[in-house]
């Protein structure tokens, strides 16, 4: 996946599936070729790509973050420099807000379609509202409606936070396959935090670091 031919990679899905960690990891993985991450989460002021700015910038990733993010006036603004990604050679990773937060993405539908994109649907079997594959598909269709864009692949990021084990991930493989079958979209990769959680016998495992803000 990390070697995708498309210049724009959109990471979207149900809220709390781990989209931001996937986005930040993808941006870091493609930093050497030049990458930019766009924090497009206009829905929720907590736990967002803006939290990882120092790390991203240190790795050479350009960051486009709403001006007031992580302040007490965190308001849903779309920085004008987002337009720059449609005219550059960088790999652009869009970290989209959960569920109806994808409406913000719809603003750029024409530019995104013109440049060409991959849109990844991040799923986590352990999220109650999408634990049923059919519900996961329903949420996916809603997001497509909000964003006016079509998903091109699935990312299986099934996890239970710190309690995730290799077995937790392995148990989600058939769930991801079921969502894949229902939608006709390929499972592009299975993402895990740390080597130790990579399930055996699963193709295309993307090992990430944990970029979630720690409070204590």
């Amino acid at each position: 996946m990390v070697g995708s031919s498309k210049r724009i990679i959109i990471v979207a899905g149900h809220f709390g599936t781990g989209k931001t960690n996937v986005s930040v990891s993808l941006a870091l993985a493609s930093a050497s070729r030049g990458s930019v991450i766009i924090d497009l989460d206009t829905v929720n002021p907590y736990f967002r790509a803006a939290d990882s700015v120092p790390e991203l910038r240190a790795a050479g990733v350009r960051t486009i973050i709403p001006e007031y993010s992580n302040t007490n006036v965190d308001i849903p603004t779309l920085p004008p420099e987002i337009a720059s990604v449609f005219f550059s050679d960088e790999t652009a990773i869009f970290d989209v807000g959960g569920d109806d937060g994808a409406a913000a993405l719809g603003v750029y539908e024409r530019d995104i379609s013109r440049v060409g994109y991959e849109m990844l649907y991040v799923i986590n079997m352990y999220r109650l509202l999408i634990a049923d594959p059919e519900d996961a598909v329903a949420v996916m269709r809603e997001i497509e409606g909000y964003s006016r864009l079509r998903f091109t692949g699935i990312v299986n990021n099934s996890n239970l936070g710190a309690e995730t084990t290799r077995e937790t991930v392995a148990a989600s493989v058939s769930y991801a396959e079921c969502v894949s079958k229902l939608t006709g979209l390929p499972v592009v990769f299975t993402s895990v935090i740390g080597d130790a959680r990579a399930p055996e016998g699963v193709e295309n495992v993307f090992v990430m670091d944990d970029h979630t803000k720690k409070l204590f």
Binding site: G16, N44, Y46, Y126, L160, G161, A162, L215
Partner: peptide, 8 residues
């Protein structure tokens, strides 16, 4: 913080 945090 607890409202937004995720844990099993």
């Amino acid at each position: 913080a607890i409202g937004q945090m995720m844990e099993p």
